[in-house]
Amino acid sequence: MDSSENPVHSSENVRNLPIIGMEFQSEEKVYDFYNLYARSIGFSIRRGSSSVRTNKVVRRRVLCCSKQGQYQKHSRGTPEEKRLDTITNCEAKVVIKLFGNVYRLVEFKEDHNHELVPPSQVHHLRSQRKVDNK
């Protein structure tokens, strides 16, 4: 689902659309930026895969929708009580890479395959609980 299809989250309400080539001073600043964007759209994010140097500096990081991924088969067969379907294999994400001392946004996918949360409920999402409304 594209955010433009949802009248609650029209393009006028979207703050700071991520653009390939944007630069950030730290990985934390990228996370904060994408989290504010996610709040304005109506979804939660999480840190995904990363590539780290030997000195523990992150070279590449994926920040994705919290509904990204797939459930694996249970190791002991089918469980009696099925989990809630909270993962939908959503493809929405940003990918950053370190160039010198600057993190650059190199990939951005914005389409979601699930319903987005209305603005009145977005503060309940996990990554949005700590966001300061400025």
Results as ranks from 00 to 15, higher is better:
Asp111Trp: 10
Ser3Pro: 12
Ile20Leu: 03
Ser49Cys: 09
Leu63Phe: 12
Glu28Ala: 11
Leu63Ala: 06
Val94Gly: 01
Val102His: 07
Gly69Ala: 06
Gly69His: 04
Gly48Thr: 05
Asn6Val: 10
Asp111Asn: 15
Glu91His: 12
Ile19His: 04
Leu98Tyr: 00
Pro79Ile: 13
Val122Gln: 06
Val30His: 01
Arg76Glu: 15
Phe108Trp: 01
Tyr37Glu: 01
Ser66Met: 07
Val58Pro: 00
Ser127Pro: 06
Gly21Lys: 05
Leu36Asn: 11
Gly69Val: 03
Val102Thr: 10
His9Leu: 11
Asn13Trp: 09
Thr86Pro: 03
Gly21Thr: 03
Gly69Ser: 02
Leu125Trp: 06
Gly42Asn: 03
Asp132Gly: 13
Glu12Thr: 12
Arg60Cys: 04
Phe99Ser: 11
Arg46Phe: 08
His112Tyr: 04
Tyr71Pro: 03
Ser66Lys: 07
Arg129Met: 08
Glu28Lys: 13
Tyr31Val: 00
Arg76Trp: 13
Thr54Ser: 07
Gly48Glu: 04
Arg83Gly: 06
Asn13Asp: 11
His123Gln: 09
Met1Ala: 01
Asn6His: 07
Lys29Asn: 13
Phe99Gln: 10
Asn133Pro: 08
Ser44Phe: 06
Thr54Arg: 04
Asp111Ile: 15
Lys109Ala: 01
Tyr34Gln: 05
Ser127Lys: 01
Tyr31Trp: 10
Val14Trp: 10
Gln70Leu: 11
Glu110Cys: 10
Ser4Phe: 07
Gly48Ala: 01
Asn133Asp: 12
Phe33Asn: 02
His9Lys: 09
Arg53Asn: 14
Leu84Val: 14
Leu105Glu: 03
Asn6Gln: 06
Pro7Asp: 03
